[in-house]
Simulated scan of single mutants.
Amino acid sequence: MTTATDETNPDGRGFLPGLALDFVIFGFHDQELKILILEYKNTDLFALPGGFVREKEDLESAARRVLAQRTGLTDIYLEQFHTFGSLQRYDPAPLAQIMQAKGHAAQPDHWLLRRFITVGYYALVDFTRAVPQPDAMADRCAWYELNQLPSLMLDHENIVAKALETLRETLDRKLIGFNLLEEAFTMHTLQRLYETVLGEPLNRSSFQRRMLSLGILQRLEKTYTGKAHKAPYLYRFIQPD
């Protein structure tokens, strides 16, 4: 849950107290929606990537800084979707276990073991361009399919559910700004993306008619050559002026 070695200082110098960031980072690959997860060895704990806000840093700047550190990308879609502040989410035990496994003293008054309110962001990235990197406390940062996520610490499963709910509500309206697909894609790939986000199958003909009626797709002259007959057209999004 940290983004730099100085975050393990007992007093948290340089960071805003009590405020954290958590990220649901979506990627789309092999017709499946995936989420980036941090793994902590010797603890059996898993968590969403997260970080903290520096004292002289805008909230949005902090979010983009942490996101770039975890993915190696800067030009991606990022949106704040919810603030999580329930008293029930506070539990210092998992983070104390992680700190001890990494050789850090987990004193009860350590700033990382205090209560935090977290601002949730979701990001949509090009899976092929992302280079996942763990933070200072994690041992691995890896993609997991949405329907095969490990059990996540604290309330991170609730954060994933809320991010997915938000994504479903805005899928049509904000799809152009997403970075989940390659520049050129087939209608089948686009439909599969919708199905994985929505969690249900869609009628092929109805889906194609609806997508074409939105006026956001441009059909390309070049067609996909993976099949000998009736090769499907490739499409790309029409970028807004």
Results as ranks from 00 to 15, higher is better:
S86D: 12
F237H: 07
L113D: 08
S206K: 11
C141N: 07
R173L: 15
R209F: 14
P232A: 11
E165L: 13
P94S: 04
D172N: 14
D6C: 11
H29P: 00
L154S: 10
G103A: 04
L234N: 03
L38A: 07
T8P: 00
T170H: 10
A136H: 09
L36M: 11
M211G: 06
R219K: 10
I37K: 00
T3A: 11
K162Q: 14
F23N: 04
G27C: 02
F237L: 14
Q69E: 14
R192G: 01
Y40T: 07
L38G: 03
A138T: 05
F185S: 03
E145L: 10
R114E: 12
T2Q: 09
Q100Y: 01
H104D: 01
T118G: 06
N147A: 10
T186I: 07
F46K: 02
R70T: 13
L152M: 07
M211K: 04
Q80F: 05
L217T: 04
D139E: 12
D58L: 13
Y194R: 05
A184F: 02
I98P: 00
I117E: 13
R210G: 10
L202Y: 08
I117L: 12
Q133M: 15
R204E: 15
Y90K: 00
F127S: 09
R209K: 13
L152Q: 01
L167M: 12
H156C: 11
F185P: 01
D58W: 07
V119R: 13
Q88P: 00
T5I: 15
R70E: 12
T83E: 11
I216T: 07
A142E: 14
H110Q: 05
D172E: 13
F185V: 10
S61C: 05
K56V: 08
L87H: 00
T118F: 08
G27W: 01
M99F: 03
R64K: 13
P10Y: 11
N203D: 15
